[in-house]
């Protein structure tokens, strides 16, 4: 592997990690607060991508300015968060918080099955490709390698912004502090008068919007096809599990680890490309069952 290929692999890995992080961080945030693993999270990612690619394709073909690509992504994320995430939490998840884990998992799995078909009904099985955002920004040269500015600069910047923004939101704003309080100790938080319902809804909407945003960002770099949601939920779970459930900063590091592992596999052992993320996860869990940054909680007896 020469220096150029090495640089390429690193760039691929970083760009990919940025996308996976967007989805994984929403997943881990929702888990931290609601204690539910949202299997439908992969669908939010796919729908964000479909929305961006199909609306973008239509408006850019109609001659609208290309700079609209980024606002469109925010719009897609907002739609996923508010139109999809909101009602799902309000109407469905709220009924099952008291039920046992296996059933909660099944309910989000059912939502995932439904949304997979919804995508096929709306967008069919043809791939969508809409790379205006990518093309607009052109390429840059780093270490003698030409790479798209969008993937090498924009995606990582957005991911870092989200990471820092989320941290500030959770630590500095009232809503954020309420979310943290519920995460730390739900019973005490509700006992002192925090409206847990509102916190749950807010968290789920934000988490879903992050996944939608991840999909929107991804749509510029890859064709949008059926099944991308299924791949992404398992991959982002691998990231979240590697980091430790509920660990936001950890998810960023795990995403980088898995993103880089995967991109190096592409160049070195292409047939293992799909397996690497899982192998990394399995290795980490073998040594640390609670994940890299997870904390062991012993039951009080």
């Amino acid at each position: 592997m020469n220096a150029q290929l090495f640089a390429l692999a690193v760039f691929d890995g970083v760009a990919y990690a940025a996308l996976v992080f967007m989805v994984a961080v929403g997943l881990t945030l929702i888990f931290g607060v609601l204690r539910i693993l949202n299997v439908a999270h992969g669908s939010f990612y796919a729908i964000g991508a479909y929305l961006t690619a199909s609306i973008g394709g239509a408006i850019f073909a109609a001659g609208y300015a290309p700079w609209l690509a980024l606002p469109l992504m925010f719009l897609a994320a907002a739609i996923v968060g508010i139109v999809l995430g909101g009602p799902i939490e309000r109407l469905l998840l709220r009924r099952i918080y008291a039920k046992e884990d296996a059933l909660q998992l099944l309910v989000t799995f059912a939502v995932f099955m439904i949304l997979e078909d919804v995508q096929r009904l709306i967008w069919g099985t043809q791939p969508y490709f809409e790379a205006t955002a990518l093309q607009q920004l052109g390429n840059i040269e780093v270490f003698g390698v030409f790479y798209t500015t969008y993937q090498l600069v924009v995606l990582p910047l957005v991911a870092i912004t989200v990471l820092i923004g989320l941290r500030l939101f959770l630590r500095k704003t009232l809503s954020g502090k309420l979310i943290l309080a519920v995460t730390e100790d739900r019973e005490t938080a509700t006992a002192i008068g925090i409206d847990a319902d509102k916190v749950y809804l807010l968290t789920f909407v934000v988490g879903a919007a992050l996944a939608g945003f991840g999909g929107a960002l991804a749509s510029a770099t890859t064709s949008v096809v059926p099944g991308m949601g299924a791949d992404m939920i398992v991959l982002s779970f691998a990231v979240v599990a590697t980091a430790g459930l509920g660990q936001i900063e950890g998810a960023a590091i795990a995403a980088l680890l898995i993103g880089l592992g995967r991109s190096f596999a592409v160049y070195l052992m292409p047939e293992l490309q799909v397996l690497i993320p899982y192998l990394i996860m399995l290795l980490v869990l073998l040594v640390r069952p609670e994940g890299l940054f997870g904390v062991v909680r012993t039951r009080k007896i």
Binding site: F112, M113, R120
Partner: peptide
């Protein structure tokens, strides 16, 4: 085309 959707709704209804 909607087989999984049907299953999904059924699953929710049963649960």
């Amino acid at each position: 085309d909607v087989w999984q959707m049907v299953l999904g709704f059924f699953l929710l209804a049963i649960i």
